[in-house]
Write a protein that binds this DNA or RNA. Structure first.
Length: 472
RNA sequence: GCGCCCUUCGUCUAGAGGUCCAGGACGCGGCCCUUUCACGGCUGAAACACGGGUUCGAUUCCCGUAGGGCGCACCA
């Protein structure tokens, strides 16, 4: 095989694709692409209670929106339960697993006793060496892995380095539930092996699992994949990411008006670096990505930086592409439908004209939407407080005087600018004194893009009639 | 509680024993540009958690301490 690297992203479909998962997927994706390998997708849906169909599509949609694709069809872990059971039996045959007849209540009591005594809460191995003849009747057994009780299990982690676990710290975990369904650690090992996964890149929350899984690989005489555990993403306060921070689905970021390219760039930079490079394309990411430069410490999610980066991408995106992205954004963004409904071909053409000026100051698509509102707003134009104050001042007077000048001017930005400038000079005004009421009357807002671009974008008739409305 | 992991400006990070009185980016302050807001340019404040070692020399290696995180389910 010429492309030996196989990575996988293995979310459990119990909710949306959150930001940490998105980054894990990105790293797996980048690593696979970097090495000309494949990234597989596996849905860890063995928990039938919590796994849902909507969650699966939310995750797939999230990946697609982010621009991350995978190789082959997504694999359902649940569908492979028979194979997992088969391997559990194999472990039993090899003497590396045993049946445990403990009841839930018994295990609970065991944990409570350990906690009360200040001891580690582990299974005490009471069925480990007990003969089957002791089996109580009427109790369906679970199958436990017979973990080595001495020595150490070592993970040569590509991010963390060598991590040593003392085997006495790791108890005999259940690999097959009493109802015959596999448990996470068994399923993961079997699937990763069967799928030919060579590199496991996931969050550090799986580090302990890595040790247990490594033991299972060894018991099966299977090669252990290369492992890399990524530090988690924290909230701005350093604590766990909560809903009010960034623990949102990627769809929430989409609705906040962030561009996928900016998200990719930001996420890649969170915990990974390539020297001092801050802004880089996805192609560069693929070219540069490595595990050596993934940091070991958790990173805090910083919206301010994401926003700044998004601004860069807004400006860097070609007008037509940005327009397309914006229209797509409107179709699902809160309040976007109303604007979309008013965005006929005519309005779209104006928007396209105004875009170069608009995108300079919009850091997100949401801001773009707000700032482009005047292009499709119904008349009479709603005015914000500041715009109203300007017009209620001497704004109307200025407009009235300026109107005839505009009516006689060629309708291009430079011509309009020249005309307004010479008018200002003749009157002894500062340009701002003219620009402010113009802007207020045309956009209903005191903060907006270049006023001459606005005039052009709106078109001669629309502009003049709006100005007449407000001057009257 | 037990185990494991982490620790450079407020934040993301560069740094792989001398090149570091620690560099970049975001954010923040100032100045410039400017009709507003942005953009851009210049500039300022801002960090090697603490304590021991090792070494001629530690941000960089080792050991503690403190702080933080993750894990400890018949969840994944």
């Amino acid at each position: 095989m010429s492309s030996p690297v196989v990575t996988r992203f293995a979310p459990s479909p119990t909710g949306f694709l959150h930001i940490g998962g998105a980054r894990t997927a990105l790293f797996n994706w980048a690593y696979a692409r970097r090495h000309g390998g494949r990234m597989l997708l596996r849905i860890e849906d063995t928990d039938r209670q919590r796994s849902t169909e909507p969650a699966i599509s939310a995750i797939l949609d999230g990946l697609l929106w982010l621009g991350l694709d995978w190789d082959g069809a997504p694999l359902s872990q649940f569908a492979r339960a028979a194979r997992h059971r088969e391997i559990a039996e194999e472990l039993l045959r090899r003497g590396r697993a045993y049946r445990c007849y403990c009841t839930a209540a018994e295990l609970e009591a065991m944990r409570e006793r350990a906690a009360a005594a200040g001891l580690p809460q582990r299974y005490d191995g009471r069925w480990r060496d007990r003969p089957e003849s002791d089996a109580p009747t009427g109790v369906a057994p679970a199958i436990r892995f017979k973990a080595p009780s001495e020595g150490e299990t070592i993970i040569e982690d590509q991010v963390l380095g060598r991590v040593v676990f003392h085997n006495r710290e790791l108890d005999d975990l259940i690999i097959l539930r009493s109802d015959g369904t596999p448990t996470y650690n068994l399923a993961v090992v079997v699937d990763d092996h069967d799928m030919g996964v060579t590199h496991i890149i996931r969050g550090v929350d799986h580090l302990t699992n890595a040790a247990r899984q490594s033991q299972i690989y060894e018991a099966l005489d299977w090669p252990v994949p290369v492992m890399a555990h990524l530090p988690l993403i924290h909230g701005p306060d350093g604590a766990k990411l909560s809903k009010r921070h960034g623990a949102l689905g990627v769809d929430a970021y989409r609705d906040m008006g962030y561009l996928p390219a900016a998200m990719r760039n930001y996420l890649a930079r969170l915990g990974w670096s390539h020297g001092d490079d801050e802004i880089f394309s996805t192609e560069q990411l693929v070219e540069w990505f490595d595990l050596e430069h993934v940091g070991k410490s958790p990173a805090r999610f910083d919206f301010a930086k994401l926003e700044n980066l998004n601004g860069h991408y807004m400006r860097a995106t070609a007008d037509d592409a940005l327009l397309a992205a914006f229209v797509a954004f409107l179709s699902h963004a809160p309040g976007g439908a109303a604007m979309l409904a008013r965005l006929d071909d005519d309005a779209r053409a104006r928007l396209r004209l105004a875009l170069p000026g608009l995108k300079e100051r919009a850091k997100t698509l949401v801001e773009l939407k707000d700032q482009a509102g005047f292009l499709v707003a119904e008349r009479p134009l709603p005015l914000d407080d500041k715009a109203r104050a300007i017009l209620d001042g001497d704004g109307r007077e200025v407009l009235t005087a300026l109107l005839p000048v505009l009516e006689q001017t060629a309708w291009t930005a430079p011509a309009l600018e020249a005309a307004v400038k010479s008018f200002a000079e003749a009157r002894g005004f500062k340009l701002g004194k003219l620009a402010q009421p113009l802007r207020a009357a045309l956009t209903g807002s005191s903060t907006s893009p270049g006023i001459f671009d606005v005039l052009v974008a709106l078109g001669r008739e629309e502009s003049l009639s709006r100005l007449r409305d407000q001057a009257a």
